[in-house]
Design a binder for these strands. Structure first.
Lengths: 205, 205
DNA sequence: CCTACCGATCGGTAGG
DNA sequence: CCTACCGATCGGTAGG
């Protein structure tokens, strides 16, 4: 009982540190964010940080891996469901929207500061990202093969698709001006059907 | 004559410094890139750098503004030409491909490290980016109005379009595996006509 | 372009 | 969780 309470206190303080650190690392970059800045934001002395985190690298790794795991769990759940091609694309877009809206600071740290990870952390991070891209590349390649997606290089389609969603990570950090449902609807249309306005008839196989 | 030669020497040494600095700032981040790293890459002592650049911020500003000006000049030239909507989109995609291929290191510094600019440099940079986005937003809004582009939020279309091209900045830094023409062709198709495979008939107005 | 140097700040530790 | 502290490194300057 006492242990449980202590753990709760311990975890929430650590989470508090990670949350403040994410905001500071996002705005100042990993190398430009000092442990003094982070301690000041949390409201304790620098040396006290080390009761909750092992090192500055530990902070970065925790932020990057928690976001990475959410992406992978979300994608695995979508791809193993029985949805058609367009529904899966819509679900993946929804995943990116909801993660961007939920993790305003740490999402950008995940995107831009992972390169400061070292040794085992760096290679583990690269493995996770490679897994995510490999799963999605398989999805694109299968559906091009099956005739559901336009003939194209699966790699170019993958890179363009993933890249096209990155503005979401910046969009929500000010204040969400538009509803997430509206954004999803427009994104699905633009990415699935294209920017150019034309009449369309689906091929009946 | 003597002055011309001195200026040439001066400029090429400065350019050499900026080139090495771009590579170091890209991999280590602005705050993580030390003047000693840069001096070492150039092959001179730290103090000698200051004969060619005013400060570390001067290096960052030079890199960011030279890329920014190339984007703006390129876009202005395209939008003032007499091309139809699809041709202009194709030309803008070509602009982003050729700039990404020409400036492997400094393009990523431009994208990710501009936030370390200060005071006047920061506000000038924000103005340039706002100008680029405003010009492109006008293009999207006009062509949605005219019925050439799909009904959509011009902002969402703009963000998605610009974001979808950002993978190019990473793609060329290893070694260009695919020809730029092939990439452009696939990008135009995916962005103009969408990922989903369907027959299309253009509306005859 | 170099030698020599400076005050400030860095991540982290000892010890309580 | 704090006080006190350390060696390393930082951007930049003086002077030649």
């Amino acid at each position: 009982m006492t242990i449980d309470i202590m753990k709760t206190v311990e975890f929430s303080r650590r989470d508090h540190i990670l949350k403040e650190a994410a905001g500071i690392i996002r705005t100042q970059g990993y190398a430009g964010a000092s442990m003094r800045d982070i301690a000041n934001a949390v409201g304790i002395e620098v040396s006290s940080l080390y009761n909750h985190i092992k090192s500055k690298h530990d902070i970065l790794a925790s932020i990057c891996f928690s976001i990475g795991e959410e992406y992978i769990q979300g994608l695995d759940a979508i791809l193993s469901n029985t949805l058609d091609c367009r529904q899966k694309i819509e679900a993946i877009i929804s995943l990116h929207i909801s993660l961007a809206a939920a993790h305003k600071d740490s999402m950008q740290v995940f995107e831009e500061e992972w390169k400061h990870l070292r040794d085992d952390d760096l290679s583990r991070f690269r493995s996770m990202r490679a897994y995510y891209e490999r799963q999605l590349l398989g999805f694109f390649a299968e559906n091009i093969q099956a005739g559901h997606l336009r003939e194209s290089s699966p790699e170019i389609a993958l890179y363009t698709f993933l890249s096209s969603l990155k503005w979401l990570n910046f969009y929500f950090k000010d204040n969400k001006k538009k509803n997430a449902d509206i954004i999803r609807h427009h994104l699905v249309q633009i990415l699935c059907d294209g920017l150019i306005k034309e009449t369309k008839r689906t091929i009946v196989s």
